[in-house]
Every structure is written in structure tokens, then in C-alpha cells.
């Protein structure tokens, strides 16, 4: 009678996900979220659960270059898409900027925030204040005042546009 995860049934199967540039085969339940799969099946624990409800943004990853709350996406929906998690981000300017501006304290919201900022910088390298606010409202940071995060993002933006 016992059914462990891992058996192929109508409700679960093996899929191939493109994560941080690598093809990974993984057995999932159709009902598994991308977040659960990343953390529980692929050992990528950088994306954090904070609400599993789409509210906090701690689980944010990039899917085809756009920010995505990985708790709002099924793993099966991610098939055929390029998923990038915080683990796939190496020495990105926004990471340095977060360190320099003290843009985190406990660090729990940080992977999600950075992935959102990273997508923003890629999609809108010259984002204005309104766009920055619109995007960054999606994540909660309970520790910092957001001013630090704003500074971090803007320091990278300025870098992009070559201004002061």
C-alpha cells in the first residue's frame, strides 16, 4: 500500500529541466512546485520558502530572463524553459553591490531579491525610479530599510549607463 515518491504514476514523472545552464533529469509529482523541486530534489536550497503563496518573493528565480516566484510555478511548467537560480549567478555586479551597500542583514530574502534585481537590470538596464519600485515591490525584506537595496540597484544601473 505504501507509495513513496519516485514511482512513475499518472501524477508523477521524470522531466528534464534546464537549470543554471545544465540539463537535469528529475522525478517530480505534477503537483510539486518548482521551488520544492529545486530545494528538495536538486539540492538547490538558495531559493527560499517564505510563504508558498506568492506574497514574499523569497523564492524568486529567473525563468527565461524574467523574475518568477518559484512557489507559484509547477516544476512541470518549467520544462523547456531556462531557469536560473541564485546558485547560477556568479560574481554578478548586483551581488557585489549588495555586499557593498549592506543591502541585507539576515540574508533570507537576499537570493530572491537579488534574482529579481538581476532580471530587472537585464530587462531594463536604464530603469527609472518608477520601474524599480514596480519591480522591487514584489519582495519583502523585513530586516533592511530598502534604502540599502535601492542604493545597490542604482549603483549597478549607473554602471550600465556610464553616468556618475
Amino acid at each position: 500500500m505504501r507509495r513513496r515518491e519516485g514511482e512513475e504514476t499518472v501524477a508523477s514523472r521524470t522531466i528534464t529541466l534546464n537549470i543554471n545552464g545544465e540539463e537535469r533529469n528529475v522525478m517530480v509529482r505534477n503537483a510539486d512546485t518548482l521551488l520544492y523541486t529545486l530545494r528538495g530534489k536538486l539540492g538547490l536550497s538558495g531559493s527560499k520558502p517564505g510563504c508558498l503563496n506568492g506574497d514574499c518573493g523569497a523564492c524568486t528565480v529567473n525563468v527565461d530572463g524574467w523574475p518568477m516566484k518559484s512557489c507559484l510555478m509547477l516544476a512541470v511548467e518549467a520544462e523547456g524553459k531556462k531557469v536560473m537560480t541564485i546558485e547560477g549567478l556568479r560574481n554578478a555586479p548586483i551581488q557585489q553591490a549588495f555586499v557593498k551597500e549592506f543591502a541585507f542583514q539576515c540574508g533570507y530574502c537576499t537570493p530572491g531579491f537579488i534574482m529579481n534585481c538581476h532580471a530587472l537590470l537585464e530587462q531594463h538596464p536604464n530603469a527609472d525610479d518608477k520601474t524599480i519600485k514596480e519591480w522591487l515591490e514584489s519582495n519583502i525584506c523585513r530586516c533592511t530599510s530598502y534604502i540599502e537595496i535601492e542604493k545597490a540597484v542604482k549603483s549597478v544601473l549607473r554602471g550600465h549607463s556610464g553616468g556618475s
Binding site: 506568492g54 518573493g57 524568486t60 524574467w66 523574475p67 518568477m68 516566484k69 507559484l72 510555478m73 529579481n116 514596480e134 519591480w135 515591490e137 514584489s138 519582495n139
Partner: peptide, 12 residues
């Protein structure tokens, strides 16, 4: 539409 939920969630 741009006032529904938040920007990231609206991507879904």
C-alpha cells in the same frame, strides 16, 4: 492590470 498583485506575480 499593473495594480494587481505585484510585478513578479503578474508574470505568472
Amino acid at each position: 492590470a499593473s495594480e494587481v498583485a505585484d510585478h513578479t506575480a503578474r508574470g505568472k
